[in-house]
C-alpha cells in the first residue's frame, strides 16, 4: 500500500490507539475492559502498521526477539506477582493480605495487585496478536 493518504492517517492514528490501549489496561479493575481488551488494542495497532508499511518495516519496529521476550515476560510477571503472595502470606496470588496497597476505591491506584496483573496480561496479549499475524503472513509468503 503506497498511498500517501493512508500512510499519513495511519501514522496519526496509531499513537492514539496505543494510548487508548494503555488506558484500558490501567483502568481494567475499575471500568469495563482490562488486560485482554487493552492488549488486543495495542496488538491491533501493530497489525495496522504491518498492513500499511509491510512486514519488513514492522519487524524492524517489533522484532522476533522482542516478541519472544514480551510473550514469556508477560506470564513471568504474572507468576512473579503470584509468588510474592506465596512468600509473604503463604498462598499463591494473595492480594491485600500480602501488603499490596489498597488505595482509594474507584481510582487507578486501588485493588492491590490487580492492575499489575493486568499489565502482564496486556503485554502477553499484544505480543501474541502481532506474532500470530506475522506468522500467518510469513506462512502465506513461504
Amino acid at each position: 500500500m503506497n498511498d500517501i493518504i493512508i500512510k499519513t492517517v495511519v501514522r496519526l492514528i496509531i499513537p492514539f490507539v496505543q494510548i487508548y490501549g494503555i488506558y484500558i489496561i490501567l483502568h481494567g479493575h475499575i471500568s469495563p475492559g482490562g488486560g485482554f481488551a487493552g492488549g488486543a488494542l495495542i496488538g491491533t495497532s501493530l497489525v495496522l502498521y504491518t498492513l500499511v508499511f509491510g512486514i519488513e518495516k514492522s519487524k524492524e519496529k517489533f522484532s522476533e526477539r522482542v516478541s519472544e521476550f514480551a510473550e514469556s515476560g508477560g506470564i513471568i510477571l504474572y507468576i512473579a506477582i503470584g509468588l510474592i503472595g506465596l512468600f509473604v502470606s503463604g498462598s499463591f496470588l494473595t492480594n491485600i493480605d500480602s501488603g499490596f496497597p489498597v488505595g482509594h476505591p474507584g481510582t487507578v491506584i486501588s485493588g492491590g495487585m490487580i492492575p499489575l496483573l493486568m499489565i502482564g496480561i496486556g503485554i502477553k496479549v499484544a505480543s501474541t496478536i502481532i506474532t500470530l499475524f506475522h506468522a500467518l503472513i510469513e506462512e502465506e509468503e513461504a
Binding site: E68, F69, E71, S72, I75, I76, I79, G82, L83, L86, G90, F92
Partner: peptide
C-alpha cells in the same frame, strides 16, 4: 503445602524459558 503450586509454577516457567534459550 506449597508443593503443588510450586510444581505447577516450575512447569509453567520451564515452558516459558524454552523460547528464550532458542
Amino acid at each position: 503445602i506449597q508443593i503443588p503450586v510450586i510444581s505447577l509454577v516450575f512447569f509453567l516457567l520451564m515452558a516459558l524459558i524454552v523460547p528464550l534459550f532458542k
